[in-house]
């Protein structure tokens, strides 16, 4: 599965890109995160939430192939 991923804020500073597409054989968000953690070790030290298709999801959620986003703490207003 090819998964489009977006990064924001501090997370985009760590990945040094705002989006990329990753080819991936797993089925769940937590598996994708394991891959991203090995690609970007610094992610481990920073909290973020995960959205799939523009809605927050838990790590046990099954990947659908829709857009994933890694969202650091919100700070609007």
């Amino acid at each position: 599965m090819r998964i489009p991923i977006k990064y924001f804020g501090l997370i985009a500073e760590i990945t040094k890109c705002q989006e990329e597409t990753i080819s991936f054989s797993g089925s769940f968000i937590f598996e994708l995160l394991e891959t991203l953690h090995s690609k970007y070790p610094e992610l481990k030290n920073n909290g973020f939430q995960v959205a799939q298709d523009r809605a927050l999801v838990t790590v046990e959620t099954r990947l659908t192939g829709e857009e994933i986003a890694l969202l650091p703490p919100f700070s609007g207003g």
């Binding site: 804020g9 501090l10 919100f74 609007g76």
Partner: peptide
Amino acid sequence: IKANVPVFGK
């Protein structure tokens, strides 16, 4: 808004 909207301030 503060709690739920994905906006990021640098």
